[in-house]
């Protein structure tokens, strides 16, 4: 599995996690290039359909990163994300996607090292799981 190069999408909120990733950049903290970011204003903006779309388009893992509880720039959008993705986690295994392929977590603007750590861990986890194989039936259902 050494030659497996997973594709991982991370949805990051503009105010905390995107800034945390920027800080990791500023401090030149390396993390696997497999992890690629999509900026949203709030983790609460992330529709479960975005996660499913990412899996369908070939992502092997998806992360949603937001502000820590209590620190949301939009008061509590992150808690809305938490509620939503607790449900999605349960659905994923029903759809044949290991729940480890999805991760919701919190990274503040200052937590560059935490961002780096989460990116590394997620890459390791997905490398161990191997490529995501969506069976045709599931794929058409999801679509």
């Amino acid at each position: 599995m050494d030659d497996f190069n997973p594709a991982i999408i991370a949805f990051v909120c503009n105010w905390c996690s995107y800034a945390g990733a920027d800080k990791a950049g500023g401090q030149k903290l390396p993390y696997p290039s497999n992890v690629k970011l999509i900026r949203v204003m709030c983790s609460g903006r992330v529709d479960p359909q975005f996660v499913m779309k990412a899996f369908r388009e070939g992502a092997d893992g998806v992360m949603v990163l937001g502000c820590h509880p209590g620190d949301c720039h939009y008061r509590n959008g992150n808690m809305k994300a938490l509620r939503r993705f607790k449900l999605l986690e349960r659905m994923l295994s029903q759809l044949g996607i290991e729940k480890e392929r999805f991760k919701l977590d919190w990274v503040s603007a200052g937590e560059s090292a935490r961002f780096q750590e989460l990116a590394k861990k997620m890459t390791d986890t997905i490398k161990k799981l191997g490529p995501l194989h969506l069976r045709g039936m599931v794929e058409s259902e999801v679509a």
Binding site: I9, M41, A54
Partner: peptide
């Protein structure tokens, strides 16, 4: 940050 815009970004990133 519409659905279409984010969906396009997802596709662009993976392909």
């Amino acid at each position: 940050f519409s659905d279409q815009q984010i969906m396009a970004e997802i596709g662009g990133l993976l392909h």
